[in-house]
């Protein structure tokens, strides 16, 4: 995983690198099917080449063989193989943890342990390594699709339904996911990151989600917090210990601790935060959040610095 240069990191969003059981098994299936398809293609073209060169008496059983018998055998193998893979992907040997992910235009609401502790985060999904997790996928508005190619195949998020996708991450690291169902103007800008951590770190992360947000410890950050409240941000965004309850926009309690801003699109830093707040509609057309371009320069800086400090 090289390239600290941009948010897009080479080889973190590909089905050809397995970092979860689903993706790994599917990758094996993919390779087997690709090789088989290549062999069949070469064989068919070979027959065609032969047929082109040769003038001969054709017999019906040739069509029976090529068109019926061989395909039936191949397809039967394929159906069996893929059904077995399908069954294997869904199989887990321990009770999976539950994470609820809700798609919005154009971001992801994440609730860890929704039944008991109901810990909210957004646009970044932390997963424990080697432990099955059931993702309960929902949508608040239009149809989205949850896809982290390196970890698992995709599953749609459909309003009025809850789809379950059970995944087991197998490698510690960061993997990029993206909405795979066309969902409107900023569909290409609806990504997220999956952070796979050790079991201990996952527990620590969950505990962190229960605590209140970090205090504003400098003059500028205090000003930023005040601006956050005065400008009306809490109508949509929650920061635990500062402004709670709102669920329209992403939870910002640990926004500065995320690697990215704007649903997996830009690096998390003061520069991007300031630009985002001042002109969301330019960076992400069609987003629900308006551009806050009426903030004074120092206020804008203060909010950006404050949010960046929430880790």
């Amino acid at each position: 995983m090289n390239g600290e240069t941009t948010l897009g990191r080479f080889d973190t969003q590909t089905a050809l690198v397995g970092a979860g059981t689903g993706a790994e098994m599917t990758l094996v299936l993919t390779v087997v099917m690709t090789v088989a398809a290549a062999v069949i293609f070469v064989a068919v073209m070979g027959v065609a080449w032969w047929a082109w060169r040769r003038e001969t008496n054709v017999r019906p059983w040739w069509v029976w063989t090529g068109g019926v018998v061989v395909p039936v055998i191949t397809l039967a193998l394929l159906v069996v193989g893929s059904s077995l893979t399908l069954a294997a992907i869904g199989e887990v040997d321990e009770e999976p943890a539950v994470i609820e992910v809700t798609g919005h235009q154009y971001w992801w609401d994440v609730i860890h342990d929704p039944r008991d502790r109901s810990l909210r985060d957004a646009n970044e999904i932390v997963l424990p390594v080697d432990q099955p997790v059931t993702l309960r996928l929902k949508s608040e508005d239009v149809i989205h699709s949850f896809w982290v190619p390196s970890i698992s195949g995709k599953m749609d998020m459909i309003p009025g339904r809850t789809n379950a996708l059970t995944v087991t991450a197998t490698r510690i690291g960061r993997f990029r996911g993206q909405c795979a169902e066309f969902c409107g103007l900023s569909h290409p800008l609806m990504a997220f990151e999956v952070v796979v951590v050790s079991t201990e770190n996952y527990a620590a992360y969950l505990d962190g989600l229960e605590t209140e947000a970090r205090d504003a410890d400098t003059l500028q950050r205090t000003r930023g917090r005040d601006v956050f409240i005065e400008a009306g941000c809490p109508a949509c965004h929650a920061i635990r210990g500062v402004a709670e309850g709102a669920r329209i926009g992403p939870d910002l309690t640990r926004v500065g601790g995320r690697a990215s801003l704007g649903a997996g699109m830009w690096a998390m830093n003061v520069g991007n935060l300031a630009g985002w707040i001042a002109d969301v509609q330019d960076m992400k057309p069609g987003a629900q959040m308006p551009s806050y371009n009426h903030l004074s320069g120092p206020d804008l800086r203060a909010v950006a610095h404050y949010l960046e400090s929430l880790k």
């Binding site: 600290e4 240069t5 830093n269 520069g271 300031a274």
Partner: peptide, 12 residues
């Protein structure tokens, strides 16, 4: 350019 992407200059 790489540094500028890192600091998010392009947002503004």
């Amino acid at each position: 350019p790489d540094a500028m992407v890192r600091y998010g200059c392009g947002a503004c």
